[in-house]
């Protein structure tokens, strides 16, 4: 299972998005998350900007999530993270300053921290700060799409590689999620290519494979548990309900076979219906009767033999 947790959603360009989804499915991804970005003030009453189900047909093999990324530049502002997490499947933060990154790592409720790695960041990553976030189960995201399209003559690619290696150094390679952030289908790469890129950044083959597999899945599952379950711990997976149709069918067959009634009653009813008794006879009963019959036959034979033997002895 491969995950791509960042595909920007553009309400005005559905044809391009459809193309991207089809291409990602073709490359071998199973789950993708459509991303809506909020920058500036968070609106009062939040509704999901991404329609579900989508208004166009998409590959049936693809599982689609909804994600929201909030630009974090003013830590004093109220971001209504709890409201947002009830509407979207995944909530990500994009801090722009060191202070905001620190706050996102230490306090804010989110699932992903997705720094913009294609620009030169004015600060270093500190392991102590990032380690707190990792402890809380928050993942760090690296988006490779801007580095591939390379609109500004290699600067964004250089920054991406430099920042990615820094991030990997500071997190010791733990809790890294790699996703595409592809605005065009051209910027998407296959899972194996992404793993190779991660190896070139210094993540290692195993960790690279986890970055688009297990780590991404754990981010998704944690977000879902936070939203749905009780205290993020207990969740009802299967309550034991039976489907409606199955229960009805069972009742009918029960009535036919007489299940749920006492055996004697069933027999009585069958006799009254004129049912053949031998049909309902158990194997054991059949055997017993067969043995009885055999014994009787043997007895009569013995009786005859004795009488014939006795005859010549009698005179």
């Amino acid at each position: 299972m491969y995950y791509d947790l960042n595909v920007p959603y553009d309400a005005n360009n559905h044809s391009e998005l459809q193309q991207i989804l089809a291409f990602l499915a073709e490359l071998g991804y199973n789950t993708i998350a459509l991303n809506h970005t909020i920058s500036g003030k968070v609106p009062e009453n939040i509704t999901s900007q991404i329609p579900s189900p989508l208004p166009f047909s998409n590959p049936s093999s693809l599982h689609i999530l909804r994600r929201c990324t909030i630009h974090l530049s003013d830590p004093a502002q109220n971001h209504r993270l709890n409201h947002i997490s009830s509407v979207y499947d995944i909530v990500a933060l994009q801090p722009t300053t060191e202070k905001c990154l620190q706050l996102a790592c230490l306090g804010f409720e989110c699932d992903l921290i997705s720094l913009d790695l294609s620009i030169r960041l004015p600060f270093y990553f500190k392991h102590t700060t990032l380690a707190v976030a990792l402890e809380r189960g928050i993942k760090f995201e690296i988006c490779y799409g801007t580095g591939i399209l390379n609109g500004d003559g290699g600067a964004s690619r250089r920054n991406l590689i430099s920042n990615a290696t820094q991030l990997i150094r500071a997190t010791r390679g733990r809790g890294i999620v790699v996703s595409s952030e592809a605005k065009k289908a051209l910027a998407c790469r296959g899972p194996a290519d992404v793993i190779n890129m991660a190896v070139l950044w210094g993540l290692g083959q195993e960790r690279g494979a986890e970055a688009i597999g297990r780590e991404a899945r754990s981010a998704m599952m944690q977000a879902e548990l936070k939203r749905r379950s009780h205290a993020g711990v207990i969740d009802v997976v299967y309550g034991g309900e039976k489907p409606e149709g199955l229960a009805l069918e069972n009742k009918e067959t029960n009535a036919k076979q007489g299940k749920g009634k006492r055996k004697a009653e069933v027999l009585e009813s069958r006799i009254s219906e004129g049912d053949v008794l031998s049909k309902s006879m158990s194997k054991r009963e059949q055997k017993r009767q067969a043995k009885k019959a055999r014994l009787e036959v043997a007895k009569t034979h013995q009786g005859e033999n004795e009488s014939t033997h006795k005859d010549p002895a009698a005179p």
């Binding site: 051209l186 290519d193 190779n196 890129m197 070139l200």
Partner: peptide
């Protein structure tokens, strides 16, 4: 070489 291929557009 694989990395170079990935960055080709």
């Amino acid at each position: 070489v694989w990395g170079a291929l990935s960055y080709m557009t």
